[in-house]
Design a protein around this nucleic acid. Structure first.
Lengths: 164, 164
DNA sequence: CGGCTTGGTTCGTTCAATGAACCCCTGCTG
DNA sequence: CAGCAGGGGTTCATTGAACGAACCAAGCCG
């Protein structure tokens, strides 16, 4: 994000986090990676972002250690996966406070219950690791017509690579 | 944040959340409000942000319902307070993954224990509401020398208005 | 009434985002 | 093997946002 040129605001862990994931598009890229997107062209078509910006963001995420480059795939690292509570929390926050229908539901595989905003399962009570979550289209989903959006509308596990 | 002019990326609650709190500075303003900052001039001196930008951000946060204007004070609404898990989660995420000493510790009043990254108290096990948290200076704190930073270094409850 | 503080707005400059065009490598395909 | 298509980018001119210094206005304070 480059908070000014200097790092005056860095008297705070939050500011350091925002240096990495606080820029425009960055958290949406991370979210797509959680949904299983891995290829440059898939991010491109799904996010509708300028190529130059996508390239820059992917590079800085790799540098920061949030993504790792494996051939032509960008894969979430442990550090990146640990952003799940934040991404999920923000999404649920907007649903609760901006009277929006959820577009995606996250369901605990096995229990079959939608996880709560804090990431716990209302059925088993445990915090569900993202590997055990399945993504479903919610009532508020918009029908974008690119191949990636179409694939993301069918249920699949988080982190599982999509194939377009 | 204005994700493009259109809202193509809005097939997602996360994108809507970022429209409100995703712009540069915005989450830092919210964090300061959680620490008890309420006055324009206090945000200004603590964040070291251009006046015009601060003015614009405060206005858009009020419009969005995250802050409410009470005379010359900007106060967090319920919607704003509900961002606490996200703000705390992001801060802890950066501490864990960017080998940074915490600058601020959040301690459950009564239990006296530092809360875990997920917001639960290791002593009583409950999720601690932010009203019951006390902010302490951590080992990584930088000694900025504005009046607001000085006040924030002494322990006090979250949300409790600071007086400079 | 004059000056000081608080809470902003205005405006010229600088810097980053945008989007279209271009480039390079790989794998077909006629 | 020449040509061509597609994936994965980079380059570059244009636009819009951030910056920061200067200015404005309302409210106290002596």
């Amino acid at each position: 994000m480059a908070l000014g040129k200097d790092y005056a605001a860095q008297d705070c862990s939050l500011a350091r986090a925002l240096e990495v994931v606080g820029e425009r598009w960055t958290l949406l890229i991370v979210r797509d990676a959680m949904y299983g997107v891995r290829r440059f062209s898939d991010f491109l078509v799904h996010l509708d972002i300028p190529r130059a910006v996508l390239s820059a963001r992917l590079q800085s995420l790799v540098e920061a250690g949030v993504l790792a480059k494996d051939g032509h795939d960008y894969v979430l690292t442990g550090m990146g996966r640990d952003l799940w509570p934040v991404v999920h929390g923000l999404a649920r926050w907007s649903e609760e406070h901006m009277s929006a229908e959820p577009c995606r539901l996250f369901v605990h595989i096995g229990c079959g219950a939608r996880v709560r905003p804090d990431g716990t399962c209302p059925s088993c009570g445990e915090v569900v690791p993202m590997e055990d979550l399945e993504i479903h289209a919610g009532p508020g989903v918009r029908h974008r017509d690119d191949p990636v959006s179409r694939v993301l509308r069918s249920p699949h596990r988080l982190l599982e690579p999509i194939r377009t």
